[in-house]
Structure formats: structure tokens, C-alpha cells
Simulated assay, not measured.
Amino acid sequence: MQRAMRLLEAVAEHAYGAPAKQLARETGLALPTAYHLLRTLAHEGYLRREKGLFFLGESAERLGSSTAAQKRRSTIVEMVGHWRDVIGVPVYYALYREGEIHVMCVSDTPGNAAVEEWADFRQTGHAHAVGQCLLSQLDDGARRDHLERYPPQSLTPYTVSDGGALLRRLERLGRMEPVLERQEYALGTVCAAIPVTAGASAATFALSLPVQRADRLLPAARRLHDEVGRLLGTLAISISI
């Protein structure tokens, strides 16, 4: 396995391909061994051979994409955990992809617990800061489509359940403005969400606090805004997970 990986790494260094003899020399493998491994890797789709030169194949490219995606996930998890510790609040990362809300990462502690998902986050985007922030980044048609599939409903006395009123509220927010939400999803909880972009997808980092600490919501949101900007350079960033 290690010898095969050395060959794959060597091939990856040659954008225009490399012959077996050169790859054997670069990896320190005997030529018969290199030939055998190269044929096996080509048969499995990790390499392809054209005119005596070896290139990375589709399987290797998929493996590389998967590895890169795992690295991005680890980076996001580390950042969210860092912000949780620095700000002292639960922190969330979510995406709007293919018409659905996806909460990708939640980081909390026993002393600062995350909001309990008592009603499916995907179906209640109208009520929580994460969903409102994601919907605010969509165009009018996409917002209406989402609310037709998931009609607003009252979850608490503070929920905006009128579709028209909600659309007007989202329109006023602007595409990249932070969102504050107070007890609309769950009584006793206030939340804030910071908009970012993730490739072609809308995304958000968010935080929550118990209503008894509502006075900390705006300062915590500003701190999260600053932390996102400091570590990622700009709120208009391109990340994926």
C-alpha cells in the first residue's frame, strides 16, 4: 500500500504525465515492481495510461476530492469550537443547499448547551435565526419556493407565521446582514446568525443564548462577526463542507 501511494504521489507531481521508468526512479522502486503496481493502479482506475505516460485517474481524483472535503470539515469544526470557547456560547454552522437547510456543525459545552431541536430545523427555517439568515440570502423566488414547501407556523407567541409579513421582513434584512431572533423558535432562547457564502450556497455561522442573558446577544453577535472576519479575511468568503 505504501509503495502504491508513493507512486500516486509521484504521478500527481507530473501534470503532463510521466513514464514508468521515471516514476520508478523517483520512488526508488525496482522497475518490475513499479510496472506491476502501475498496471494494478490503472486497472483500478486510480491511474490512466496514454502513449506510455501515466496520469491520475478518476478514482484518484475522487479520493482527492473526498480527502479535501474531510480537511475542510475538520477546519470548520475547529473554527466553530474555537469561537465557542472564545465567545463562551454555542456556535452553529449551516448551509442552504438544494433547497434545504442543513445544520452541518454544532459546538457547545455542558455549561452552554445548544438549542434543543424540538421541531425539525429544516422545516422551521422561518422561526430560527439560522433559517432566517439563510433565507435572507436567497432571491425572492427561492424564498417563496421554500415557504411554499414549508409553510410558516406558530411555534411560540413570538413566531412570525404570516408568510407575507415574513417575506417583507426578510427582504428588509438585506442579503448579507446579521440576523437576530428572540424566542421565535424556542421560548427561553435568543439567537443571532452571521451570513457567509459557501461556494454557490448560502451559509451562516450562528450562536444562541438563554433569554436571561439576552443583553449579551448583540455583543456576542458582534464578536462572532469579528472572529469570522479575522480568521477568514472577509464575510464574503468561499467555503464548503
Rank of each mutant, 00 (worst) to 15 (best):
M1W: 04
R3C: 05
A4S: 13
M5Y: 08
M5A: 13
R6M: 13
A10N: 03
V11C: 00
A12G: 08
E13N: 08
H14E: 13
A18P: 10
A20C: 06
Q22G: 13
A24K: 07
Y35I: 06
Y35L: 15
L37K: 14
L38W: 06
T40R: 14
L41F: 04
A42N: 08
A42G: 14
R49C: 02
E50N: 01
K51F: 10
F54Y: 15
L56Q: 12
E58I: 10
E58W: 12
A60W: 04
E61C: 11
R62M: 06
L63S: 10
A69I: 03
Q70I: 06
K71N: 03
R72G: 00
R73Y: 07
R73C: 02
R73W: 04
T75H: 13
I76E: 07
E78W: 10
G81C: 01
H82G: 07
W83I: 05
R84N: 15
I87E: 11
G88L: 12
V89H: 02
V91Q: 10
Y96G: 12
Y96W: 14
Y96I: 13
E98R: 09
G99W: 03
H102Q: 10
S107A: 15
D108G: 05
G111K: 11
A113V: 08
A113R: 15
A114H: 09
V115C: 04
E117Y: 10
E117N: 12
F121C: 04
T124M: 11
G125Y: 11
H126M: 07
H128C: 06
H128V: 05
V130L: 12
Q132V: 01
C133P: 00
L135N: 12
S136N: 06
L138Q: 06
D139A: 05
D139M: 05
D140G: 00
R144E: 14
D145V: 03
L147D: 01
E148C: 04
Y150L: 03
Y150A: 11
Y150V: 02
P152D: 04
T156C: 10
P157Q: 08
Y158M: 08
G163H: 03
G164V: 01
A165T: 12
L167C: 05
R168H: 04
R169I: 01
L170H: 02
L170E: 00
E171C: 04
R172P: 01
L173A: 05
G174A: 01
R175V: 14
E177H: 08
P178N: 09
P178T: 09
V179I: 02
V179S: 01
L180M: 08
Q183H: 04
G188N: 06
V196A: 00
A198F: 11
A200F: 03
A200R: 11
S201A: 13
A202Q: 11
A202K: 08
F205C: 09
S208P: 05
S208K: 07
V211I: 10
Q212E: 04
Q212G: 13
R213V: 03
R213K: 12
A214E: 15
P219M: 08
P219V: 11
A220V: 08
A221M: 12
A221H: 04
R223W: 07
R223C: 06
R223H: 05
L224D: 10
L224V: 08
G229W: 09
L231I: 07
L232P: 02
A236E: 14
